[in-house]
Computed example of a mutant assay.
Amino acid sequence: MAVELNHTIVPAHDPQTSAKFLAEILGLTVDPPVAHFTPVTLANQVTLDYDHVDAFEPHHYAFMVSEQEFDAALARIQDGGITYYGDPACQEEGQIYRSKSYKGRRGTYFRDPNRHLMEILTPGT
């Protein structure tokens, strides 16, 4: 069997609010709870299992999306008044990036309610 990522734990102050936030941006749904986790399942069946934690360092999560999904997610970010950035240092506010290494790749960064740095990006060529 090939090695695959099955799930990862996402620390959150309020797991349901955090899972709902990301699911809405990505056009996904929040799955029913599994034990004390609030899961969001991605297209490749990997789950993000949100778990309540009081103190943690923010993490970075990147999501590959199609061109159409990127446009839809960016529109939801903009419509929601969520600040987004063209760089991971969050200095280029209100921008997206266009990769020179991967022709046609676009992406942007935004923070979730827990200050995790979320990134959406397209495959490019």
Rank of each mutant, 00 (worst) to 15 (best):
L117R: 15
V3E: 01
T125A: 14
F37Q: 08
F110P: 00
Q16L: 12
P123A: 10
R115M: 02
Q16A: 13
A35Y: 02
M64I: 01
I25L: 11
E93T: 07
A35V: 09
G104A: 06
C90I: 01
T17H: 14
T8N: 11
V53G: 04
L22D: 09
R76M: 12
G86W: 13
D14E: 12
L26R: 14
I25A: 10
Y61I: 09
L22P: 00
D54G: 05
T108S: 06
I120R: 04
I120W: 05
T8C: 14
P33W: 02
I96V: 13
A55M: 01
V40A: 13
K103D: 01
A62N: 01
F21R: 11
P11H: 10
C90K: 07
P32A: 07
V3H: 14
G80C: 04
L26A: 06
K20Y: 02
M118H: 06
G86R: 07
A35Q: 05
H52I: 04
E93K: 15
F63S: 06
R105L: 00
F70H: 08
S18W: 12
P58G: 10
I9D: 04
D87K: 04
D54N: 07
T29H: 13
K20I: 05
V65I: 05
V34Q: 13
T122R: 03
L48M: 15
F110H: 06
L117W: 12
G104N: 12
G81W: 11
F37W: 15
P88H: 08
T83V: 05
H36G: 03
F21S: 11
H13L: 06
M64G: 08
Y84L: 00
M1W: 08
L5T: 07
A35I: 00
H7S: 10
D14Q: 06
T83P: 01
A72S: 10
T29F: 12
H52S: 09
E4L: 07
P39K: 10
V40R: 13
A55F: 10
T41M: 14
G81V: 00
Y61A: 08
T47S: 15
A73S: 15
S101I: 04
R106P: 02
M1V: 03
T47D: 07
Y61S: 01
A23K: 06
A55S: 06
N6V: 03
A55K: 08
A19Q: 05
Q68F: 05
G86H: 14
E119Y: 10
L48P: 02
G27T: 01
H36F: 14
K100L: 00
M118W: 10
L28F: 12
F21G: 05
Y61P: 05
G104S: 09
A19R: 08
N114F: 07
T125F: 11
D112K: 12
D71F: 00
T125N: 13
D54L: 08
T108K: 02
S18R: 07
A72K: 07
V34G: 03
I25C: 02
A2V: 04
T47R: 15
P123H: 12
Q91C: 06
G27P: 03
Y50P: 03
A62F: 11
P88N: 14
